[in-house]
Amino acid sequence: MPKKVMIFPVNSLILYDLVSRFGHQPLAMMSKIAEKVRDPEVDSPPINITYEEPRHGLKYCAVEVPSGVRGRMALLGPLIEEAEAAIIVDDPDIEFGCSGCARTNELVIQMLHNKGIPILRLKYPRSSGEARDFVKSIVDFLKSIDGGAS
């Protein structure tokens, strides 16, 4: 059975591609933003988020948490709820992907851990050797979770 795999950084194109290649469904920020941008009912450029989203984010964190975190969580929270597995890359380069907010990152990682789902947590590679090991670890993980294509 293909699994819904949450990726972190939440907008990493490389992780998105790897998860897709092995037959799973990547859960990523891009797809949520694409839904927002295409929504003809809303006119709030650039990504059609209005003051409503930070309020929806209250489901995940209190009003004392900055609005930027709550707005991001309005998009990411439902993805975390759906997730059946997760790949978390620590200390990535900014080009690899980022949500822009370290506090959001902390909350996303904590919520994923609290779910009790299979999680692969690995460091961002800094050499070509590390990069090979990095990809191999991800591939092994994706194969290990039930139903992934070989």
């Binding site: 006119d43 709030s44 450029p45 650039p46 990504i47 988020i49 209005t50 003051y51 409503e52 989203e53 930070p54 900055p66 609005s67 930027g68 975190v69 707005g71 991001r72 822009g100 907010c101």
Partner: peptide, 15 residues
């Protein structure tokens, strides 16, 4: 800035 688009205030800033 940081967070304006996720707080839904970018449109207000533009206005």
């Amino acid at each position: 800035s940081c967070g304006t688009e996720y707080s839904g205030v970018q449109k207000e800033i533009a206005r």
